[in-house]
């Protein structure tokens, strides 16, 4: 579904990603773990077209999307819920969801997907008319995920969904991610610092360290890898 090969991204003279390659199979949940500053967010932003890579290819459904503007990438079915949620605090919950469906014209489909989002996150339905700025961190995360779902993606990228959220809600969010993956057969690329939880729900994992892929393996194998345990799993 999504295949990144030999990606190199620079900010001026600083190289943020160096020869990064990864693969996300259709229907899978793949996690990218890594410390702060490893380049996880840079990678997702590059895939979404917000940053132009210096070198390398990003194949989505077999076609190279590297260098396309973000709106064309969304239109192809690759959505992202960005780090720090970035909900439109000045818009209502419903308007935020409508922004997610910005490129869609199928009214019936949009209504159906709205109902789906309200089904998984009933809290959003209760707060539909509130401005998103009044929501709690956890609710904003639910909104950010739902908003990304509203574009009817084939592949969803989630950047740090557990960041800054009450611990009780983190568990719920992860359960919902699995639910979305199973119910919609949606391919998910998850970026997380909370590696333990993330790998628990994933099929496959990549470890990014200072702009390079350090290793990758099945999620279970990564969780048992002593090196990974020491560095990322607090074991």
């Amino acid at each position: 579904m999504l295949e990144v090969t030999d990606l190199e991204v620079c900010y001026g003279a600083i190289t943020a990603l160096q020869g990064v390659s990864l693969r996300v199979d259709k229907g899978a949940i793949v996690t990218l773990v890594g410390a702060n500053g490893a380049g996880k967010t840079t990678l997702l932003r590059t895939i979404s077209g917000l940053i132009k890579p210096r070198r390398g290819a990003i194949l989505f459904e077999g076609e190279n999307i590297a260098g396309l503007p973000p709106y064309k990438i969304v239109a192809r079915g690759l959505a992202q819920s960005p780090e720090g949620r970035m909900v439109f605090a000045n818009l209502t919950v419903l308007e935020n969801l409508r922004m997610g469906a910005y490129r869609r014209r199928d009214k019936d489909g949009i209504t159906r997907d709205l109902e789906y989002c309200f089904g998984i996150f009933p809290r959003l339905k209760e707060r539909m008319k509130q401005t998103a700025g009044t929501l709690s961190g956890g609710e904003q995360q639910m909104l950010a995920i739902s908003r990304a779902l509203m574009s009817q993606p084939k592949c969803l990228m989630l950047d740090e969904p557990s960041l800054g959220i009450a611990p009780i809600l983190v568990q719920t969010i992860f359960e919902k991610v699995v639910e979305i993956n199973r119910q919609l057969g949606l391919t998910i690329l998850l970026v997380e610092q909370n590696a333990n939880l993330a790998l628990e729900i994933s099929h496959y994992g990549y470890v990014l360290e200072t702009g390079r892929i350090l290793l990758h393996d099945k999620a279970d194998a990564l969780r048992e890898n002593p090196e990974i345990q020491a560095a990322y799993l607090g074991g």
Binding site: P70, Y71, V74, F88, L91, M99, Y102, R147
Partner: peptide
């Protein structure tokens, strides 16, 4: 109009929603 408001709040997020800025 909605895209204008979204863009003025957060251009990056608006791009991610598929807004041609």
């Amino acid at each position: 109009g909605m895209a204008m408001r979204a863009l003025s709040f957060n251009p990056l997020a608006a791009s991610l929603m598929g807004v041609n800025t």
